[in-house]
């Protein structure tokens, strides 16, 4: 599904049909597949516990629709939609 051959570079999540964290609705749960974006951004998220295969739960969106509130590893975290779009997830029930 993803091109892992060049791990040092920004991941190009090229598949048009894949699911992003920003696509999940409040109450939906996903498992992290891959994080794109800048190195600093990826590493920051991983350090905050958004590791590959981590379960992530969309709790709600802010009153002005952005950012979103997530629950990961038992704590609440907020990300902007534009950043959540860089996170590929698979939906879990």
């Amino acid at each position: 599904m993803f091109n892992f051959k060049k791990p040092r570079h920004k991941l190009h999540i090229s598949d048009e049909n894949d699911l992003r964290l920003s696509d999940l609705k409040p109450g939906e749960k996903g498992r992290i597949v891959e994080i794109g974006g800048s190195e600093n951004f990826r590493h920051r998220l991983i350090e905050m516990g958004l590791t590959r295969d981590a379960e992530i739960w969309v709790d709600k969106y802010a009153p002005l629709r952005d950012p979103m509130e997530l629950i990961v590893k038992g704590y609440h975290l907020s990300l902007r939609g534009m950043d959540a779009q860089k996170i590929a997830v698979e939906r879990i029930a």
Binding site: G37, M48, S78, D83
Partner: peptide, 10 residues
């Protein structure tokens, strides 16, 4: 600018 990664503490 830095990305917005904000913890919402209890």
């Amino acid at each position: 600018s830095k990305p917005f990664v904000l913890e919402l503490p209890p």
